[in-house]
């Protein structure tokens, strides 16, 4: 007993070191995104506030760039509006008025952005008060961005495509085959589409879209284009996808609210 006590006495620094490392590693191993979001949730209001203050300063320096982007976006949207209004018939307009539209977009700004880590997160300046909740999709004018992980009153955290925990069902535009889109952690410009069977004909440059199989994104949102593909693992392709969204220059995003998400999820849970 005494030798044991003496051992503790002589080595308490080493033991403290080991204890602290064990705590840290427990955090790492346990820290899947859900628990992490709870932990960070306590802090989101505080860090979100600090980040949005700092963002005010940064915004000032990038005003010119932002202006140009907005102008570009404006023209694109105007063009699309023209296209849509010419193709709309009166019936669909009426259903829109009755409030039967499925998706609603919440305009939002990114106040904090990471692109160089393995587990990147974005912070948006909209939260529950503005109608941003868990599991909503996030898109930009360029393409798909990510999924809302958790939101507090005025801020929300987003898992972008470039987070190693991101998973999304995505399909190839030309033949509608769907696979799983993931990020391999190497470059913020590329992601990997897997589980496309070997007999499918692929062409480089083909567009990758959301499949619409999940309740998060509507079908047909552009994700990226096929950069290259290989058949290394036997029956399935490894497809390298060049992402349309430039995460490093991302500024404005839209959060998609799906009014029928709950209904769809409830139905799916019932028959699982």
């Amino acid at each position: 007993m005494r030798t044991l006590l003496r051992f503790f006495q002589n080595n308490y620094n080493l033991l403290l070191f080991l204890l602290l490392e064990i705590i840290a590693f427990t955090l790492i191993i346990q820290g899947n995104s859900y628990q992490r979001s709870k932990l960070v949730g306590l802090n989101r209001q505080v860090t979100g506030y600090i980040y949005s203050k700092a963002d005010g300063a940064r915004e000032y320096f990038s005003l010119k760039e932002a202006n140009e982007l907005l102008l570009e976006e404006n023209t694109k949207l105007r063009n699309r509006l023209d296209l849509i209004s010419s193709s709309l018939d009166s019936a669909s307009v009426i259903s829109e008025v009755k409030g039967e539209h499925r998706y609603y977009f919440v305009q939002s700004r990114i106040v904090h952005n990471n692109t160089y880590r393995q587990y990147n997160f974005l912070t948006l300046n909209k939260g529950k008060k503005q109608g941003v909740f868990r599991d909503m999709g996030v898109v930009s004018e360029q393409g798909l961005v990510g999924i809302v992980l958790e939101s507090s009153a005025n801020f929300s955290t987003v898992i972008p495509i470039i987070n190693r925990e991101f998973r999304l069902s995505a399909k190839i535009k030309s033949n509608n085959y769907a696979g799983i889109l993931q990020w391999d952690g190497s470059s913020p410009r590329f992601a990997v589409l897997s589980e496309i069977p070997f007999h499918v004909d692929l062409t480089e440059g083909d567009t990758i879209l959301t499949s619409g199989f999940s309740s998060i994104f509507p079908e047909g949102i552009e994700v990226g284009r096929i950069e290259s593909f290989s058949l290394e693992k036997g029956n399935f392709y490894d497809i390298k996808v060049e992402l349309f969204t430039d995460f490093q220059g991302l500024f404005h995003v839209n959060v998609i609210r799906n009014y029928r998400q709950e209904e769809q999820l409830n139905l799916e849970i019932q028959y699982r």
């Binding site: 070191f17 602290l20 490392e21 705590i23 840290a24 590693f25 427990t26 955090l27 790492i28 346990q30 820290g31 628990q35 992490r36 932990l39 960070v40 802090n43 860090t47 990471n114 880590r117 587990y119 997160f121 955290t157």
Partner: peptide, 20 residues
Amino acid sequence: GLAMDLFTGTPGMHTAATVL
């Protein structure tokens, strides 16, 4: 490390490195 982890949303990675 813990403070950095809270800010960056990583679980324990900065903590393990700074303790070391």
